[in-house]
Design a protein around this nucleic acid. Structure first.
Lengths: 242, 242
DNA sequence: CGCCATCTTGACACGTATCAACAGGCGTGG
DNA sequence: CCACGCCTGTTGATACGTGTCAAGATGGCG
């Protein structure tokens, strides 16, 4: 019975879309099996807080978008990170995280209890190495965003964000052909205008205005406020990094 | 002769102020000895670029302050990180770094060749773990700064930066007594007004104005533009996080 | 159908940037 | 030794971008 149970779990993993993308890619079949004993799938609806500063949840993101937010005591809020599949969510090696994690859309997670997960890290150095590389990339992204927050104009900010979401959230028709060919993209925003503003250090009104301006100069087309078409990505890039 | 040489190197390390603070703290005496064979001390004068995006230098910071900068093509610049002793400098696991490292003051480094260092990481997992925790802390700081850049006013930004520098650069008379007692600080800024501005996403004029405003309301005293006294730290904290 | 959330648009205010002039400190060179 | 220029920082006048407040518009859903 028990053997059979583990077998089905292993099967579930091997069918997982993340098997060779998330941190799981650093694990062998045997290790993965071990890992599965502590994993648990979970669904979270949009708007719900996943963790606050009293606790941390560790998880692979299977589906959906998660925003990491920080808030000043008077309510001003800033999104300090945006996580897509197959990102790893959660602050390891501390009891609490210095930010909140909130579901921006409906989200599916593959969660791990903290103690068990950190024990795994000790057992499988390859896994910790993988997470370390993830973290280094996150740090690079955070610094890229600091440049945006500190030095870019509202229009550049919006353009940069659209590019970023296009490349990460995309079920895209983005062909990325070089030279004389034009590459385009189509995607749906996983965020409200208020979220966009919180990520860019702007107000939602300013974001809205910049979107209409980008539309009026033909750089983007709005299908329905969330669905966006970028006919020529290079135009957007030129605006994002003048 | 060779044995004698290693002996003197080990002695140099054991006398190092960083022995039990920098990443070296994760190493035993034997490991440290090993490490020493690839380490080399180096001095860099203020203003000099330590590495650009074509190369990375790995090093422990023994003395001085290093700024990590990013620049847009039209010259707008943002400092995306500030490093003090005993921080570790350099982006491992990539050939290039997405930012420049520049000496803000005269700097003393204990440098390592990249290949050799990464080999050490493979040999001593404890060292990699230590660097991982460093990186996680850096990521937390970067996100804290994103909140500052996106949502704080000029005055809050300056106040926050002064607190940060006071706590990190301090050869401080900061007594940190609680309750009714007042704790004060005195320190000298390792940065020019232009650097402060680049770190805060402001212009140097705005920084200057905010400094004089803080002085005029009695929150700070300026000894000589670089030397600063904070008579009551809690006042500064109240301004930094209203 | 009407409510509610989301988004857009407008008028105006305000904070910060920009441009410019000036002050002080410091090293260099006559 | 003083004069000069340069670098750093301060202060002022003004411009401009974004925030704020308010009114509508749109679309989904009970």
């Amino acid at each position: 019975m028990v053997a059979h149970l583990h077998n089905t779990i292993a099967t579930r993993c091997s069918r997982c879309v993340l098997r060779h993308k998330a941190i799981c890619a650093a694990l062998s079949e045997t290790e993965l099996n071990d890992f599965n004993k502590i994993a648990r799938q979970r669904t979270i609806t949009a708007g719900q807080v996943i963790y606050g500063d009293d606790d941390v949840m560790l998880a692979n993101i299977l589906m959906g978008v998660i925003k990491l937010t920080k808030t000043l005591s008077d309510g001003r809020q800033q999104i300090v990170g945006l996580q897509f599949p197959p990102d790893f969510l959660g602050r390891i090696y501390t009891k609490t995280a210095p930010y909140f994690a909130e579901a921006a859309t409906d989200v599916e997670l593959c969660t791990f209890p903290k103690a068990g997960f950190e024990a795994m890290l000790r057992r499988y150095p390859g896994l910790e190495h993988r997470l370390f590389e993830n973290t280094l990339d996150e740090l690079d992204s955070a610094r890229e965003w600091m440049l945006l927050l500190g030095r870019k104009t509202a229009q550049e900010k919006v353009a940069t964000l659209l590019l970023m979401i296009a490349s990460r959230a995309s079920n895209v028709g983005c062909s990325h052909i070089h030279s004389p060919e034009i590459s385009s993209a189509r995607f749906s925003l996983p965020l409200t205008r208020a979220d966009l503003a919180d990520y860019l250090g702007l107000t939602l009104e300013t974001v809205s205005r910049q979107m209409t301006k980008l539309k009026s100069i033909g750089v983007i087309e709005l299908v329905d406020n969330r669905e966006i078409i970028v006919p020529d990505i290079s135009m957007l890039e030129k605006i994002a990094d003048p």
